[in-house]
Computed example of a mutant assay.
Amino acid sequence: MARRGTRLRTTGKALAALTLGAAVLWWLLPRTSGVSWSEVAHLIGGIAPHRLAGLAALWACGLLVHSFVLTGALPGLSRRRALTLSLTGSAVSNVAPMGGALGVALNCSMARTWRFRDRSFAAYLVVTNVWDVLAKLALPLVALVGLLTAGGLPTRGLRTGAIGASALLLVLVAVGVTVLRSDRMAAAVAGFVAVLVRRVLPRAGAERGNRLAEALLQTRQRIRAVVARTWPQLTLGMAGYLTSLAALMWACLHAAGAPVPVYAVLAGLAVERLLSLSPITPGGTGLAEAGTAGTLVALGASPLPVVAGVLLYRAFTFVLEIPVGGLWLGLWLLLRARTARTAGAPPGPAVRLPA
């Protein structure tokens, strides 16, 4: 009964989050672009099925490229299991604000069934998230270079964002490299965390703080070993994934009738990647679409095909991941239960998501 109540609460939160995201998108996008939903629906409905199939294939290729980042961050992870983590984690994360914690909980349960240690999975989380953040911060710089090379004049907001992201990127890289290379710096960071825990939890904080500091130092050693061995794969995989996303956005815009140059696509992708981190709605729904379309229109593109192209792009990179990832999760659970029955053993602990 308690498990059923937890599932109902989780489902209710997911539905409420999706409703909020849809409402923000429905209200915000027409007001920022001046384009009606009926015009957008008519344009997207006229795209030939074979072009949609090609876009879907391009989206699938991007997921395959991204799997190289995951296998590099967790040695021993197969390509199929990397795709399982990617799709199922995205499906869960895309249905709730701050849904990343739900996706992490699900992926952690999966990693345990594959006999990966929690310490290895913790290192995997840190490495993948660091490379993802660095990629999101590097994109505005790449977009700015593309605009300047093409002779375009970027807006003040894009210039400020690119400069700020570039400065933050350099700081993060410098801090990360220092912490990984310097035992003294790593010990200082761990000690600071321990002191912080003791102040927040004065009664039991000393013991917890010491355990956390020790765990951080152990995780740092694992991260250092992983990065030293697979950083070329991680970097090339992430660069390839961003390239596939840019190609997908360019193809979606062209399918909708918006011949946007490459440098403008990079600017739009930079804005979309940053706004997708917004905790207000799942995946930044509403904000990401409006911001991306606004950036492309500001760079000279026509509003109607741009809005249609951006919505088509988000349909592949956000919406489609929910049913595909949900189906993938269902098949994984079914195969897991069937394997357990064949082996004559119980299926093990069920995958539970936090309420």
Rank of each mutant, 00 (worst) to 15 (best):
A96P: 03
P232S: 08
L168Q: 02
G300F: 13
S36F: 03
L87G: 01
V126N: 01
A258H: 06
L320K: 02
P305M: 10
G89Y: 11
V127I: 12
V265I: 06
F192R: 15
A350F: 10
T292E: 11
M110C: 02
G103E: 09
G300P: 00
L275C: 09
G62N: 14
G45S: 08
L320E: 01
P323C: 07
F192Y: 13
L148E: 07
L245H: 12
R156W: 08
Y124H: 11
K13P: 01
F68C: 04
L170T: 10
A343D: 02
L353P: 06
A186W: 00
G291E: 08
Y241S: 03
G191K: 14
L153G: 00
L25K: 07
W26Q: 03
E214Q: 13
L277T: 09
V95Q: 12
T219L: 11
L327N: 02
V177E: 01
G330P: 13
L137M: 10
A105M: 13
G100Y: 15
A23S: 10
A239E: 02
F192G: 12
L43R: 15
A239H: 07
T219D: 14
M249C: 08
L8Q: 02
M185Q: 05
G89I: 07
Y313M: 05
R4S: 00
A60M: 15
S86M: 08
G326R: 00
F316W: 11
G284T: 00
R79T: 01
L102S: 01
M249A: 12
F68H: 11
A60D: 06
L248H: 13
A122C: 03
W114R: 04
R338Q: 15
P346S: 12
I163M: 12
V104K: 08
T230K: 09
W328C: 06
L304D: 04
G103I: 04
A105N: 03
L353Y: 15
S78C: 06
V310S: 02
I44S: 06
V65S: 08
F316L: 14
A267V: 03
V197E: 04
N107A: 06
L212D: 01
M110W: 12
G100C: 09
A48D: 14
L277M: 10
R184P: 00
R336K: 11
V195S: 12
L83W: 08
S93M: 14
R159Y: 06
A239N: 04
V307N: 06
Q233P: 02
F116V: 04
V65P: 11
T219H: 13
L64G: 09
L245W: 15
T155I: 02
L311Q: 07
L83I: 05
V324F: 13
G191I: 11
D132F: 14
P49V: 10
L125C: 04
T84E: 11
L335D: 13
S120Q: 13
L28Y: 06
T281L: 02
V145A: 14
P282W: 00
L87S: 05
W131A: 03
A48S: 13
V297C: 02
R229Q: 09
A264V: 09
L139S: 09
G257I: 01
F116L: 06
T128L: 02
